[in-house]
Each structure stands twice: as C-alpha cells, then as structure tokens.
C-alpha cells in the first residue's frame, strides 16, 4: 500500500504505508534557547529545540525563535547540562517569617518622591548645573546636517 493523500505532494512521493520503530539516533537531546534583542541586554530564555549537537541547535533556534523578533545573539545550552533544584525542595524558597523589608517595592515610589521634592523647592535639573543665565548672551547655535538649527536655551 502506498500512501494516498489529498495533498498531491505526498501522493507523488510513493511512500510505503508502514510504521517503523524509531531508532536511538532519532532520540535527540533538547537545547534551551536564549536570545538577546540588543547588545548589552540580558539573554532571555525563549524556548527549547531538539537537536543532535550545539551547531544544529543554533541553526534550528534561529528559525524557531529569532525569526519574528529582533535578535543579535543566540545561546543554546543542552538541557541536561543545566543544574536544577528539586521541586521537592521548593519550600526552601518560602520565608518562615515576614521579610517584606527585603522586597524592593520601596524603590517604586522614589521617582514620585524626587519629583515632589523638586516641585516643592522650585528646583529643576538645569539650574543646578548651568551657570546663571545672562540676558546679554545669545543662545549658542549649532547647525547640523539637514539644515535643522538647534540652540541651547539659556
């Protein structure tokens, strides 16, 4: 029996209809894939590919995970090489007592506090660092390509 399919490409191949057991060489390792969207940024875990070796894993990872979004660099790591904790020990991550002072939520408010302080004291970033303004001085003008004139307000 040959495989007959609605898909002409399949029928054309004259494939024998049989199920064979997979050989061991078809059982490949998995590799964890990390991609980096721009230089200097962290590599982020994006998924897994099956591959027989790291070079092939990179080939596959590129089309699986770097095809739809910006990517400048890929890492692949054999899953078996990742040292992991045991879920049975998950309780060690649970604090026995309230330690919310270790959480960093306090910083969330910092920007708002800085802005509030500035508003109350009439200060702004420029006046602290620039020399005092002089009315006789004309603003510095710099011409850049394209004919746009930019000047520093004083």
């Amino acid at each position: 029996m040959k495989i007959q399919s609605l898909d002409p490409r399949v029928s054309r191949l004259d494939l024998p209809e049989l199920h064979r057991p997979q050989s061991e060489s078809e059982q490949w390792d998995t590799y964890e894939v990390f991609h980096q969207q721009a230089r200097g940024e962290q590599h982020r875990h994006v998924g897994v590919v099956h591959a027989p070796d790291p070079e092939t894993a990179v080939l596959f990872a590129k089309e699986q995970y770097a095809r739809r979004s910006r990517c400048v660099n890929l890492w692949v790591v054999r899953t078996a090489d990742v040292f992991v904790t045991d879920y049975a020990d998950a309780d060690m991550f649970e604090p026995a007592f309230d330690k919310n002072y270790r959480e960093s939520f306090g910083y969330k408010n910092t920007r708002a506090l800085v802005d509030k302080f500035k508003a109350e004291n009439g200060a702004n970033d420029d006046s602290n660092t620039s020399p005092p303004p002089s009315s006789s001085e004309t603003p510095k003008r710099t011409k850049i390509a394209g004919g746009v004139v930019v000047g520093k307000k004083s």
């Binding site: 399949v10 191949l13 596959f60 699986q64």
Partner: peptide
C-alpha cells in the same frame, strides 16, 4: 514532510 519539526520549520 521534513524529517523533524525544527528542520521542517527552518
């Protein structure tokens, strides 16, 4: 029809 999913996608 390619032999493996990843190769098929590539």
């Amino acid at each position: 029809l390619a032999p493996i999913l990843e190769e098929d996608i590539a």
